[in-house]
Design a protein around this nucleic acid. Structure first.
Lengths: 117, 117
DNA sequence: CGGTATATATCGGCGGACGTAATCTACAGG
DNA sequence: CCTGTAGATTACGTCCGCCGATATATACCG
């Protein structure tokens, strides 16, 4: 499972959302780093329904436009939990190994002394 | 950047290693969940050298077999740090959202009451 | 002598992300 | 009025990167 898919599941963890809503939620929770394209989004949504990690919650017609809501299934939540744990482990492994390294040139240096954190 | 690539960079963060050594290190640090295949490994290694995230450190000939060592470049370390931070953020976002959910059916239920955490 | 571990190269297949264009409605601006 | 933007989905084609398989070569163990 790749990043876009993971974030789609994460976005749905707070409750059912429709496709476009997922895009916005993902942009927000990824701090703007991930902006889902239509192709990625709806392709992933279809695939995830097929895998039963998400399901169609309900459909609405607003202003003549279809609005299809998706929700996370229990299987989807389980899979997400598993992947999240794994991701965190890997991130921690990488960060602790990098710390052990002498000097690491980082791209941005906002708040270098950690005063705001 | 996908999981295998990320783990290859992580494996090299502790110091230069040759291809086969990377495979072993990755299996170890991922707790056996990721076993790099030859195709994945050498393909990724070539690609990463081209992107200058890693570089060939040195080559040895042991028992007539070639042993090519790779090391993480500063650019590679920077990229890894960036991705690690991002991964951790995403993992945290997913986990906190899952906690907010009522009931989540997990595959394994080690320490169900969180006594050890 | 065959099997396993070490070590790398290469190729084809394919899943999944990407990019873009098309479609439709509502609404604001020139 | 026409254009542009935002909301919302569908439908294409492309491409990157992972995977499995195959090949090669040596050392060691039974």
């Amino acid at each position: 499972m790749q990043e876009p898919t993971f974030l789609i599941l994460t976005a749905l963890a707070t409750g059912p959302k429709h496709g476009y809503g997922v895009t916005q939620e993902v942009a927000e929770l990824s701090e703007g780093t991930v902006k889902l394209r239509a192709g990625t989004l709806y392709g992933a949504l279809d695939r995830l329904v097929e895998q039963e990690l998400i399901a169609v919650d309900r459909q609405e017609v607003v202003d003549g436009r279809l609005r299809r809501y998706y929700r996370l299934t229990d299987a989807g939540a389980g899979k997400l939990a598993e992947r999240a744990r794994r991701l965190r482990k890997h991130a921690e492994a990488a960060e602790s190994r990098l710390q052990a390294r002498p000097n690491v040139a980082l791209g941005s240096m906002a708040d270098p002394f950690g005063a705001s954190a």
